[in-house]
């Protein structure tokens, strides 16, 4: 168990990324009781746009410090993702708000395929390396290693989450969002423009997704057109684990899932005597999802029990 601290650190880093994406799922779910199936694709496109942007700047021999290049890349990717989030809501969800529940799910799956295929058309099927613009420094804490990038990811995630909580709990917009989530008809009667609020929810969630996408790409040094599916699914699991519709729950779920996954990947082989290896890592998210839905469908922090189908 000598690597325990290291696994915990790795789990926290990837967990805070999951938490950011899970916030996007949970916000949309809280308002519309629907899963945004195309959210994972937004994460992927955020990462790809940033990488392309940085490569273009590097290709043009722009001599800027790495952190500035990254900021410019992010500043390009966030609006693209926001626009996509807005588009997804307009195309897949708004026209079908009164349709049977299956309908928006299917349009969202269709959109997710379209985004994935457009991404393969633009960026190809291969892995895109993350340009090595950041100067990686490592620190040692109690035998475990943490990089400045990992610290930055955790800090940035905390800052963004704090800003989001402030927005939702303290601002007028946040109050309108909460009202819409509680009862959309009454919110409309109170003078809330619920259509705008729903659009904004998608847009804010997409911005978080884009940032998270860049974090994943930077952390693993790569991105590719099919990455959105798995990471989206894991983040969704995190949202369910924490209690879907609950912002604090999404953060908690993300961190818990990240740590479970990291510890699982680290110790699975030892625990099962080499029968199951770390290649089963991706199964953890699914197993956690199924177990949570079986035994505590409202999640760790959720109060509302899942309604009938």
């Amino acid at each position: 168990m000598d690597h325990l601290l290291q696994h915990l650190i790795n789990g926290l880093v990837i967990g805070s990324v999951y938490a950011l994406i899970a916030l996007g799922y949970t916000m949309v779910y809280g308002i519309m009781q629907l899963i945004n199936f195309a959210h994972g694709e937004i994460v992927m496109i955020g990462a790809m746009v940033t990488i392309t942007c940085i490569n273009m700047l590097l290709g043009a021999n722009v001599a800027l410090p790495g952190i500035l290049l990254l900021t410019i890349g992010l500043a390009m990717a966030i609006p693209v993702s926001m626009a996509l989030g807005y588009g997804i809501e307009r195309v897949a969800y708004r026209p079908l708000r009164n349709a049977p529940r299956l309908a928006p799910l299917i349009t969202a799956i269709g959109l997710s395929i379209v985004l994935q295929q457009v991404a393969t058309l633009i960026w190809g099927r291969n892995y895109r390396p993350f340009p090595p613009i950041l100067e990686i420094k490592t620190f040692e804490i109690g035998g475990a290693v943490i990089t400045n990038l990992q610290v930055a990811i955790i800090v940035l995630a905390i800052v963004i989450m704090a800003a989001l909580f402030f927005l939702i709990e303290r601002s007028k917009l946040g109050r309108a969002m909460r009202a819409t989530a509680q009862n959309i008809d009454v919110a409309r009667l109170m003078g809330v423009n619920t259509n705008t609020i729903i659009s904004l929810t998608f847009v804010i969630g997409s911005a978080l997704g884009a940032v998270a996408g860049v974090m994943v790409a930077a952390n693993y040094d790569q991105a590719h057109a099919y990455m959105g599916f798995l990471i989206g699914l894991k983040a969704f699991t995190a949202a369910v684990l924490g209690g879907i519709g609950n912002l604090g729950g999404a953060v908690l779920g993300g961190l818990v899932l990240g740590i479970i996954e990291s510890l699982g990947a680290g110790y699975l082989s030892d625990l099962t005597g080499g029968v199951l290896t770390s290649s089963y890592k991706d199964i953890f998210a699914f197993a956690v999802l199924i177990l949570v839905l079986l035994f505590r469908p409202s999640g760790l922090l959720g109060e509302r029990v899942a309604e009938r189908a």
Binding site: L34, I35, R101, L102, L105, L233, F236, V240, A285, F286, L289, I290, L293, P297, A306, E307, R308, A309
Partner: peptide, 13 residues
């Protein structure tokens, strides 16, 4: 017992 969209995700998993 799951709702439509939960079911979709679990079956996918």
């Amino acid at each position: 017992k799951l709702r439509g969209d939960y079911l979709a995700i679990v079956t996918l998993g």
